[in-house]
Design a protein around this nucleic acid. Structure first.
Lengths: 230, 230
DNA sequence: TGACATGTCAAACAATTGTTTGAATTATTT
DNA sequence: AAATAATTCAAACAATTGTTTGACATGTCA
């Protein structure tokens, strides 16, 4: 008995079924959620035996944790938060890139399209696996956004307005994915293709920039000497 | 055998267990979702026998449909979309009321606090029961918002900008609830009490108004003669 | 080749869960 | 009060599901 715990396999045979189980599990977990997903269905899609999940991952929950980490890593690797925009680019450009990359990650149609759905499910029913995802992935991304928003608002990153406005930006991105049931019901004609994602990125960026540059209390007392420093 | 289908009961005893089952089911469904909720737990909380669900509602799924309708009706009755703001009030006031009522409905702590969670779950795993909820509740509310936004943008309600901006408004409201796992993890100190809901309503309204009044293409070609007509 | 570890497989196990059943209890009607 | 209908109850049923088991196959190394 082997019972590896989250380490990459070395044997080519094992590596193959290991990877196929991950892919199949990602699909099924995304489609039906953790509880509704059956190991039988996962193994069927992976062309593996029923006992394969327990042999390779220990149990169903450990497999799920692996899938979550795997999808996060893949998605962030495919669409990094700033999409290659230069570090010294104007904050407006960075904001646009941040928004676009978030939309691309969520709406990705590729082989790892389960990332968005898995994250949506984690929002409602967070598992223990979500802890590390938040600390290792989401918090750094948030801090990146705070810096950008802080520059645009011209106020320190720990100002409450930075937090509120940053959430306002992110919320518009996740909405179209999380509430796509409603969006596509109210506007059945609208397809969610790459061109539309681009259009959404445009709107969200313009909407948010207009808001932040004309926010009633945006230019009040606070000094702006250290606005871009941390 | 009775097997009533979604009609209100007439017998006082039956009415009592019927209602208690609905309340208990609302709790459990909100906490754990449809699949993870067990009829045994629901009946336990309702002080009813295991067979009560099947006797009163037919099966577990029919009970769920009832719960969803019940929670929607209760929530909208408690917090109507415009919170009593006059029909001829300025659109800015109406927007603020719309935002506030949506937040109140979602964050409601009262006896029917499961409304928000149930809706979140329906977004990800829409059941057949969601169809009627969208058509009977959500679409009318959306049209109400489109009118308000159309007035603010000064363009017809079927303009694409109205749709995009309306979604931008709603998205900020649902975000704080749907992604509260992340929000409360990034800012553990922040409590989600009534005062904070008020503050959120303020920010979202100000942010959105600033955006809509200064949107780059907000005042282009379209005529505004029929802006408030439909 | 032979010994040994690794991986795969079909079958069975144990626990959970929605539902049904038929008797017992309670309420309503005649 | 008797009869009838409605409701509750404990027990059992049937299906699903995660997991385990022990045999069998495959590959590796002496």
């Amino acid at each position: 008995m082997n019972l590896k715990t989250s380490t990459a396999p070395e044997n080519p045979n094992q590596a193959e079924t290991h990877r196929q189980l991950l892919e199949a599990a990602g699909e099924v977990f995304a489609e039906t959620g953790f509880r509704d997903a059956t190991v039988r269905e996962i193994c069927r899609r992976a062309n593996a035996n029923i006992a394969a999940v327990n042999y390779h991952f220990g149990d169903k929950e450990a497999l799920y944790k692996e899938v979550l980490r795997y999808s996060q890593q893949k998605a962030l690797q495919k669409y990094p938060p700033l999409l290659g925009v230069a570090a010294d680019a104007p904050p407006e450009k960075k904001l646009r890139a941040f928004v676009h990359s978030l939309l691309l990650r969520i709406f990705d149609k590729g082989p790892t399209s389960w990332h968005g759905k898995l994250m949506s499910r984690e929002m409602i029913d967070p598992t223990a696996a979500m802890d590390s995802v938040i600390e290792e992935r989401i918090r750094p991304m948030s801090e990146q956004l705070w810096k950008i928003v802080g520059e645009i608002l011209d106020c320190p990153v720990n100002d409450e307005r930075v937090r509120l406005c940053s959430f306002s930006v992110v919320s518009q991105c996740v909405f179209y994915f999380h509430c796509r049931v409603i969006v596509s019901r109210l506007f059945p004609a609208q397809e969610m293709d790459a061109a539309y994602v681009e259009k959404l990125a445009d709107h969200i960026t313009r909407f948010s920039l207009a808001a932040m540059k004309h926010l009633p209390e945006a230019k009040t007392s606070k000094s702006h000497s250290n606005a871009t420093r941390n």
